[in-house]
Design a protein around this nucleic acid. Structure first.
Length: 287
DNA sequence: CCACAGGACGGCT
DNA sequence: AGCCGTCCTGTG
């Protein structure tokens, strides 16, 4: 990958494994929207960004080299060699040889922990359009207003702001029964009971148990938080799609979610979370 | 009007 | 330990 600055843009060339549709519209992040020209605009780490990919060239508009180095390089997981990952997953595995092409160009975004926690609490028993709508209302009402390319955007609210909210305050985001879970999570972060720095000291299983002390966080949501907010690729979120595809292609029978999770870890090891993404895409296209 | 959506909880047995 | 009704809201 080469990097150079052009006007106010950062241009990357010789980039492999970057498919915007697979990255932004797969349900791992909810704050990216497609523009009519095929570029995407999103907000993360308090900044807005518009990004466009064509072949192996990627343009990040109206940003700086320091923001790229400090935020976006890590956010887009550019240090990971996804081609190597795919080769490992496909080795001696005909299922993955079939599934991987469907998720071509997926990358696991390294998102902010608190945002990931709240987003996946909201995801429970919900669909992507509505998840996005709720999160949008949450940010518009409780986030910070920023300007980018002549338009206004809102950052994801911080934990202190949400910790002070009542369920009545949150009613306007239309989160339904999840409002009290959002407040509980915000309080645990605000009081310092849970933080990124603190969780980093633990192994994946211990973090999962800590996350599950937040109400509204069960196995599936905890695994999503681990994978998308803590870069723990050894966690394997089992949603209805992954459950179906694993039962059909690997287990050959009905199975409990924790049984599927264990099977995946035994098979794919510490990159089972990446395998999950390819299987998810395959399931969405073929079931 | 009723079912159910990319889960979690709580009260059962 | 495991099962199942219920939880808000929006969409079909």
């Amino acid at each position: 990958m080469n990097i150079y600055c052009e006007n106010n843009n950062i241009v990357l060339t010789e980039v492999s494994d970057f498919n915007p549709v697979h990255i932004f519209e797969c349900g791992q992040a909810f704050r990216w929207d497609r523009n009519s020209d095929g570029s995407y605009t999103g907000i993360a780490f308090g900044k807005a960004l518009r990004i466009f990919a064509e072949d192996d060239k990627i343009t990040l508009y109206n940003t700086t080299r320091s923001d790229f180095d400090n935020i976006w390089h890590n956010y887009f997981d550019f240090d990971r060699d996804y081609t190597a990952v795919k080769n490992i997953l496909c080795e001696n595995d005909d299922v993955m040889k079939t599934a991987v092409p469907y998720g071509e160009g997926i990358r696991i975004l390294k998102q902010e922990l608190f945002e990931t926690v709240i987003s996946f609490i909201i995801s429970a028993s919900n669909n992507i359009p509505r998840i996005k709508k709720i999160i949008d209302l949450l940010c518009t009402n409780f986030g910070q207003k920023i300007e980018y390319e002549g338009k206004y955007f809102y950052t994801f609210p911080d934990c202190n702001t949400l910790a002070e909210c009542s369920v009545e305050d949150l009613a306007l985001i239309r989160a339904g029964f999840r409002d009290k879970y959002i407040i509980d999570a915000a309080k645990k972060f605000s009081e310092g009971k849970i933080s990124y720095e603190m969780l980093c000291n633990y192994d994946t299983q211990d973090i999962k148990n800590i996350l599950k002390t937040i109400s509204g966080v069960g196995d599936k949501v905890a695994n999503c938080i681990l994978l998308f907010g803590l870069a723990r690729t050894d966690s394997f979120p089992v949603d209805v799609w992954v459950k179906r595809i694993m039962e059909i292609l690997y287990l050959k029978k009905d199975a409990k979610n924790n049984e599927i999770e264990k099977f995946a870890f035994d098979k794919f090891g510490n990159i089972c979370g990446l395998a999950q993404q390819y299987l998810f895409f395959y399931a969405r296209e073929n079931l």
